[in-house]
Design a protein around this nucleic acid. Structure first.
Length: 495
RNA sequence: GGUCUCGUGGCCGAGUGGCUAGGCGGAGGUCUGCAAAACCUUUUACAGCGGUUCGAAUCCGCUCGAGACCUCCA
């Protein structure tokens, strides 16, 4: 285990707290995954990248992390009214598919997008529909404890009753008494005793497709219950970190807290982490607003708002350049800036492999590693760590230009630090390495040959031949750069 | 209406009492057969008003503006 002084902003206290796992070296991390009834959009990439960073960094520090990210495939209703339709079931009805076909289709596509973004797979990826029994058991426990009631085959959480023994609303700062007045009128809430009550189990109407037997008749679980049930099953009744988007803070996470306390008599989560939203024209990118752009559309450039296609790594870097608790505003300009910046960073890493050590160093690079750790220990401040790395990029390029020098110790230290942070922790990788060992080797071999031929032409001042090679490669999005030490090349972004 | 967050230079974004983050863009220069890249210099900041302080972008108050949640949303 590395020595560290990791601080995490806990949404529950709204303060930065020292991170102390319950049972080191183990860490339990639960993150709310997607409801699989549509393609993932840019907004979905935010928690994925954020908690991928958390996962990677905790592992890097030496923790044994069990990372659970669920797939919601049942119980997520269009709205809170009794006639609210299940999101998955609705999609299935519209497309005339079996609900599980919808689930499988979008789960596969989600995985594909996540892989492109170089998101590590979670340790466990449980589905809500695979844990009906656990959810029924939890609902029973809550009923038995007296914090829920049954009406017509549905089970509702009794918020008012719960609030007498615990404090409902401590995460979102809501007060139960005040929630009645502010609540909008929703039809079909007759069964609930209090507007703030929420379903643990819903009776299935005769036409409802997704249904399971339960002590209360055929039905399906409420949305909030799955996370509580699956978190407890795989991470224990108390675990370290629970993450998700800020928009889930209320009611979803508030309900989770209540369910866990009601069922187990204690809080399930030590540290609540919430990533902020991605905005577009200053407004939240979201499904209901219809202003979202899917990740596939970004990768292909196939959305009318996009001026070009964006590499998944550009998206990843774009997200890492902002702190996870800040909103991040999308625009083509901002993404293009991220694309250029990432190229500069990755190019410097390649340069780092090529430059040769001197006897002495003219610059001090020993502090870089320390500064990067300090940044990440401060609530995973990736943008600050990246800024430090960019400072070293300038140094690296100056060494390449023979304006500065590095000793072999310093050079080695820089290489290690860049690999650790850029590759391992930030999960950023260049195009070439992703193409597989074999084809990558072939390409670099071919490029060496081409550049050698071009160099010979240049020696003989045969500019037409040398420019022809360069222009043709340019046409393939390969940039040729002539330096003092010969020429180098890189693959540029797609246009 | 309630709860909360935010307003930083052309753009994206760190910072949260004194030491002008960083990236992208613009301008000038060095290098180069040309180009690209790189390097150097440079440009425009902390919404407004008041207060606390030796000192505020940073703390407090007010005003204006934007957003999130209160229904599903990452």
């Amino acid at each position: 285990m590395k020595n560290h002084d990791l601080h995490i902003t806990n949404s529950l206290t709204r303060k930065k707290e020292v991170f102390q796992p319950i049972k080191p070296p183990f860490v339990g991390l639960y993150v709310c995954g997607p409801t699989v009834y549509g393609d993932a959009h840019l907004g979905h990439a935010r928690p994925a990248v954020t908690f991928d960073l958390v996962f990677r960094y905790l592992k890097h520090l030496g923790y044994k992390v069990r990372y659970v990210r669920n797939i919601t495939d049942v119980g997520h209703l269009e709205n809170d009214a009794d006639d609210g339709e299940d999101k998955v079931a609705k999609k299935a009805r519209l497309e005339q598919l079996e609900p599980m076909e919808v689930v499988q289709y979008y789960t596969d596509r989600y995985h594909h997008d996540m892989e492109k973004l170089n998101i590590l797979k979670p340790s466990i990826e449980p589905r809500a529909s695979g844990h009906i029994i656990e959810q029924i058991e939890m609902a029973r426990a809550i009923l038995k404890a007296g914090y829920a009631y049954e009406v017509n085959g549905s089970v509702y959480f009794d918020v008012a009753r719960y609030n007498m023994d615990y404090k409902y609303g401590k995460l979102s700062g809501r007060v139960v008494e005040e929630m009645v007045a502010g609540n909008r009128d929703l039809e079909g809430q007759d069964e609930k005793r209090h507007p703030a009550d929420f379903a643990l189990w819903k009776k299935a109407s005769p036409t409802h497709i997704m249904r399971w037997p339960s002590p209360w008749g055929e039905g399906f679980p409420g949305w909030h219950l799955e996370c509580s049930a699956m978190g407890a099953k795989y991470l224990g009744t108390t675990f370290d970190i629970h993450g998700g988007g800020m928009d889930l803070l209320f009611p979803h996470h508030e309900c989770e807290i209540a369910q866990s306390n009601a069922a187990n008599g204690k809080d399930a989560v030590r540290y609540w982490m919430h990533n902020n939203m991605i905005t577009i024209n200053g407004q939240k990118m979201g499904k209901s607003l219809g202003n979202f752009i899917t990740l596939r559309e970004f990768f292909e450039g196939s959305h009318k708002s996009l001026h070009q296609a964006y590499d998944p790594m550009t998206i990843r870097f774009f997200i890492l350049q902002a702190h996870y608790r800040s909103t991040l505003d999308f625009s083509n300009e901002a993404l293009q800036a991220a694309e250029k910046g990432l190229q500069r960073l990755l190019q410097a890493m390649e340069t780092l492999e090529r430059i040769k050590a001197s006897k002495t160093s003219s610059v001090d690079v020993s502090l870089l590693e320390k500064k990067c750790y300090e940044a990440l220990n401060d609530d995973f401040n990736a943008p600050v760590a990246i800024a430090h790395l960019f400072d070293s990029v300038r140094t690296i390029n100056s060494v390449k230009d023979k304006k500065e020098s590095l000793s072999s110790d310093h050079l080695e230290s820089l290489r290690n630090t860049f690999k650790t942070f850029v590759t391992d922790i930030f999960g950023l990788s260049g195009e070439i390495s992703k193409q597989g060992e074999e084809s990558g080797q072939i390409i670099s071999g071919l490029m060496d040959l081409l550049l050698e031929l071009r160099q010979e032409a240049r020696k003989q001042k045969d500019w037409s031949t040398s420019d022809k090679i360069r222009d043709a490669l340019n046409g393939l999005n390969i940039n040729v750069k002539d330096g003092a030490e010969g020429s180098s090349w890189s693959i540029s972004g797609k246009n």
